Amino acid sequence: MTVPQDDEFRQMYAANFPPLLGYALRRVEQPADAADVVAETFLIAWRRRHEVPGGPETRLWLYGVARRVLANHHRGDERRERLGDRLRKRLAAVVPDPGAEIPERLAVREALARLGELDREVLTLTVWEGLEPREVAEVLGVNPAAVRTRLSRARARLRELVGDDLRRPGHVSSVLTVPTPEEGR
């Protein structure tokens, strides 16, 4: 068996890429995954080029390699899915949802979703993560004064969206009030 040289390998690639890509596309959910499968198939072919048979057997050999690459791809997906499930269960037990303790959590979540992305992030980093405005500014890469302004506006807008009866104990808006440093923070 002769080892394909660069030109021969290019020709093999050009002749076999379209059918292998079609093969992979029909067996994966995402086109990017198919491209990865074909790329890995040809990488293996390059590394094992001394084993690649010539003539019409080349395509069959490449299909065999692609089949094994796809099998590995699918096993990897299954492993990632199982790991993701375990991680989600563990995270749910370790990191409780701060909004889960509030009876009106759906109203809060809906109102938060209606805020702008930066306002929502400033508010949640301050209230739920317990960061000071200067810390939030560092996380977001903005000026601390801008964080304080956005925080004030975001709180006001959120109160407006969920109701402004702050005197009622347990009202969802009560979670939006974070003590100032003078109040013992």
Results as ranks from 00 to 15, higher is better:
Val94Arg: 10
Thr180Ala: 12
Pro181Gln: 06
Arg59Lys: 08
Ala32Tyr: 07
Leu91Arg: 12
Ala93Thr: 04
Ala107Gln: 13
His50Arg: 09
Asp97Pro: 00
Glu8Lys: 05
Val94Glu: 13
Arg10Lys: 15
Val95Cys: 04
Asn143Trp: 05
Ile44Glu: 13
Val147Arg: 03
Ala156His: 05
Leu161Trp: 05
His74Gly: 00
Thr180Ser: 11
Glu78Asn: 04
Arg59Asn: 01
Pro56Lys: 02
Ala93Gln: 12
Pro103His: 02
Thr126Gly: 07
His50Glu: 14
Met1Leu: 13
Val52Arg: 02
Asp33Gly: 05
Gly84Gln: 14
Ala146Arg: 14
Trp128Ala: 04
Glu160Leu: 06
Ala14Arg: 14
Leu176Asn: 04
Ala45Glu: 03
Trp46Cys: 13
Glu182His: 02
Glu51Ala: 13
Thr126Asn: 15
Gln11Cys: 03
Arg68Leu: 09
Ala34His: 03
Glu101Gly: 12
Asp7Ala: 14
Leu158Gln: 05
Glu81Ser: 07
Tyr13Lys: 11
Gly163Val: 09
Asp77Lys: 11
Val108Ser: 07
Val178His: 04
Glu57Cys: 00
Pro19Ser: 08
Leu87Trp: 01
Ala24Ile: 02
Arg88Glu: 15
Val178Met: 06
Arg150Asp: 10
Ala35Pro: 00
Ala100Asn: 03
Arg82Pro: 01
Glu160Trp: 01
Arg48Cys: 09
Asp7Gly: 05
Ala137Trp: 04
Met1Phe: 13
Arg167Lys: 11
Val162Ala: 05
Ala34Asp: 01
Leu158Ile: 07
Arg150Cys: 09
Pro103Met: 00
Ser152Trp: 00
Asp97Thr: 07
Val175Pro: 00
Asp33Lys: 05
Glu81Ala: 15
Leu21Trp: 05
His73Ile: 01
Ala24Ser: 11
Glu78Cys: 01
Glu40Ala: 10
Ala154Cys: 09
Ala107Glu: 13
Leu131Val: 04
Val3Cys: 08
Thr149Trp: 10
Ala32Ser: 11
Asp33Phe: 06
Ala34Gly: 03
Arg148Glu: 14
Thr58Leu: 09
Ala146Tyr: 14
Val175Phe: 12
Met12Ile: 15
Glu160Cys: 01
Asp97Ser: 10
Leu123Arg: 07
Met1Asn: 09
Asn143Lys: 13
Gly55His: 08
Gly99Gln: 09
Met1Cys: 08
Val136Ala: 07
Glu29Leu: 06
Arg148Ser: 15
Leu131Met: 14
Gly84Lys: 09
Glu117Tyr: 12
Val95Gln: 03
Pro179Glu: 05
